[in-house]
């Protein structure tokens, strides 16, 4: 992630796969969270308003709807440097756009199975529903995801290379439709 002076040491540890015990202890995972504008993003804002602390490893990427999240983004994020990806949207039935989160659920669940098939640990890619009022749930969810990914350690170079395989990108494309079969 950022190459800020204070973070150089840990960034270096990420690059070497955190093989020394001291580095492993201070290793911080980088987690990208896709958040829908209407529910989870406002839930995160509410967490801020209530000054709820959570790990600083999480970066939110605002999308209009969880249905906007293309599996390719997740693949790219994990292939290029994220240790975990979280996709969050409105609760089923509460989608601002009527049905976007149902599409997200279908396509991302199929995609998750594909990722697990390639050997990725299930904890590294998670999908959660968090409403605009659930600031506490937002804090708890990102905290838990951070802990889980930290326990898993950094994604290995082999894993990242496997994720960058164009065959996998092609397979991920087949999960995009997300339509009711």
């Amino acid at each position: 992630m950022s190459v800020v002076e204070t973070n150089v040491a840990t960034t270096g540890a990420m690059a070497t796969g955190a093989n020394s015990p001291a580095a492993a202890e201070s290793w911080q995972p980088s987690i990208l969270a896709f958040a829908c504008h209407w529910c989870t993003y406002s839930g995160a804002d509410l967490a801020g308003l209530n000054r709820m602390e959570y790990p600083a490893n999480v970066r939110l990427l605002r999308v209009p709807c969880s249905g906007r999240v293309n599996p390719q983004y997740v693949l790219s994020a994990l292939g290029k440097g994220a240790d975990g990806v979280l996709v969050c949207g409105c609760h089923p039935g509460d989608c601002h756009y009527v049905s976007g989160n149902y599409y997200a659920k279908r396509r991302l669940m199929a995609f998750k199975r594909l990722l697990e098939f390639t050997g990725l640990e299930p904890g590294r890619f998670q999908v959660r529903w968090i409403s605009g009022s659930e600031a506490g749930k937002f804090r708890d969810t990102v905290t838990r995801v951070c802990e889980e990914v930290r326990a898993l350690g950094p994604l290995t170079t082999d894993q990242r290379q496997a994720l960058a395989d164009p065959v996998l990108a092609g397979a991920a494309a087949t999960t995009q439709a997300g339509e009711a079969q």
Binding site: V63, P64, C65, G67, R68, V69, N70, P71, H96, Y97, S99, G100, Y103, R107, A173, Q176, A177, G178, E179
Partner: peptide, 12 residues
Amino acid sequence: CQGCGACTVACR
């Protein structure tokens, strides 16, 4: 169009 973007992901 309300701009949800569901179609963009479905588009192969």
